[in-house]
Write a protein that binds this DNA or RNA. Structure first.
Lengths: 340, 340
DNA sequence: TTATAAAAATGAAAGCATTAAATAATCAAA
DNA sequence: TTTGATTATTTAATGCTTTCATTTTTATAA
């Protein structure tokens, strides 16, 4: 039943040449007579030769496998990033090995530690939000395997990182609220450990400062990233004596939670209370009022990080660098004072 | 810089025993003195031995890699299925190789044909919606690699398939509309080629028949699966002379499109026109009115298909079978005549 | 033209880390 | 002793890459 797949050896026998010549001809990277190469490729195509990845990996040390470590895949941002990664991995002949941490630091650590690193050329990672320890990644890097971090990047590690412009995005979002006449702007933030939480917070603070608006600690709430967290944080905010008149949420899911809570509590979102998010999740066009937000270049982040990783794999001597991709303000109804 | 990883050979030298004994001890599958095994495992743990997947795959023929062929990952259903797959693959020591077809039959075919099948033990696939040809899968199966289809399964192939109960779900959805007093029920369907489109259509028709309601061909529209298709189809429906008073959409995204269009055209969704979807995408709780739907067991489908695939890999003689997982009606506001 | 060096093309064989089949050694029971 | 069971070792095999050696071809100088 199980057909024995065609090997290089078989091609060599058919053409009456040596195995090494076939191997070289197939890889287009050594001195081989163009005529010979042509004949080899012809037979290979004809007989649908598929290289045995394992043999090749074993002999050469290059596996053509990339690991992707990611907290979730069931959300718009991450699944879009993966699309970008997959696209460039595929066109460059790399396979993707998916490692979903469920945003759980222990699981992340055990996954990395149990990883058969010999089977990977490199790793693309977005750390889980409660992982402050990153030794397991450092030792991976020390072992000589290339790692590129994206979006959720650790601060205390010297590696290539790819992010959107979180500071500028947050600054633009906050400024947009200010420009639209909101003056008492709260921020429902994410997990403190993550550097993008810090960057978005900084952008928010900077915008307030620039416009001489008050910064009040009780208007800044750290929690998780879910819609429910958004609901709880908002509830919290509107129990305060001094209530804000706008909310900048660290992401769209929390912003959605905010809108839902505000509506439930009888506020008119937009007219009374402005809301803006971050991501441009498709849900932001569905919710009412539609959600203003900062668009993140998710697909490009995936593409860019994968390209950088492949470069690192090809040349171990490239120095780490940080890439920041621009994000764009998208205005919808949740931040409009006038309309409605 | 690059540390040479620990090999079986190193362990053997340390313990002064042969390589094969170490190999067997590590795999717990041959007669090895329990004492010896204990010592081997001790050293392996101590020195953090990680097996070389490629060497192992080459020698044994088992790669512990599973390919997942999927139209998209940026949607709730598929990303949830992948979560289920990933979970069981991981606990069984399998890696996932992701192949995203972008719902494009040619791309699907070329991906499969260029696949280094030697590097996969099996394949989990959900076919792209315009792929009526499935020869590339058949030849994979003929080559002896295990394939399990899920959700979007081809009809003309004898293989294990895992689906939700599309017929019953559609029947329940339609019946629910009927019970709530809607009598002129339209169906905005998906791509004709896919068997689940057919099954959902059958469920819909069956429910109408059972309640002696009219079946009108112009109330059944086939198109794609996107929100935009939902909008267009709905627009189409309400240009007719005889207009329906309810819509059963093949999935939630189309139902969302329907609701948006209906609202735009001034209809009161629920009170005037009932809408029900299929999937239970989180968006169905966000849209207003909230969307009634049929919940699909996406995570379980991923889990179940992966488990079945692993069984097939372990025992090539298992006969193909079809698994149908139940789906459940979830009632929200879009199908309520009275409320609002 | 011939001899010789240089370059280009090819081949043989070792090696990659593991598994597995075929032996071998050990020891107890018959 | 012989037999059988248990445990361990030797050796071959997996399919490919790569180093080193060899052959063939081409260019250069005598």
């Amino acid at each position: 039943m199980k057909k024995r797949p065609l090997r290089i050896k078989d091609i060599a026998e058919i053409l009456n040449i040596s195995v090494s010549t076939v191997s070289r001809a197939l890889r287009d990277t050594y001195d081989v007579n163009p005529e010979t190469r042509k004949r080899v490729l012809e037979v290979a195509n004809q007989l649908k030769y598929k290289p045995n990845m394992h043999a090749s990996a074993l002999a050469s040390g290059n596996t053509r496998n990339i690991g992707v470590v990611i907290p979730f895949i069931t959300n718009y941002y991450f699944s879009t990033v993966i699309s970008g990664i997959q696209e460039t991995a595929y066109t460059n002949g790399y396979n993707l090995i998916l490692l979903v941490t469920n945003d759980n630091a222990e699981r992340e650590q055990s996954m990395i530690e149990n990883l058969a690193i010999t089977s990977l050329d490199g790793l693309l990672v977005s750390i889980s939000s409660n992982s402050s320890m990153v030794d397991h990644f450092q030792s991976l890097i020390d072992d000589g395997i290339s790692v590129v971090f994206f979006d959720r990047v650790p601060e205390n590690i010297d590696a290539t990182k790819v992010m959107q412009d979180d500071f500028q995005g947050a600054f633009d979002a906050t400024k947009h609220l200010i420009n639209n006449g909101y003056t008492r702007i709260a921020h429902i933030a994410g997990n403190k450990h993550l550097s993008f939480t810090q960057n978005r917070l900084s952008g928010y603070l900077e915008a307030l400062k620039k416009h001489n608006l008050p910064i009040r600690q009780e208007w800044i709430i750290y929690s998780g990233f879910s819609q429910q967290c958004g609901e709880e944080d908002t509830h919290e905010l509107f129990k305060l004596q001094e209530q804000p008149d706008a909310i900048f949420a660290v992401n769209d899911r929390k912003a959605v939670g905010a809108i839902i809570t505000l509506k439930k509590e009888g506020y008119h979102v937009g007219k009374q209370i402005g809301v803006i998010g971050f991501t441009n999740d498709p849900i932001s066009t569905i919710i009412e009022p539609s959600l203003s937000t900062i668009e993140e270049p998710a697909f490009e982040i995936g593409k860019e990080s994968c390209e950088l990783l492949i470069k690192h794999i090809a040349n171990k001597k490239i120095l780490p660098r940080e890439i920041i991709l621009p994000s764009t303000l998208i205005v919808r109804d949740s931040s409009k004072r006038e309309t409605l």
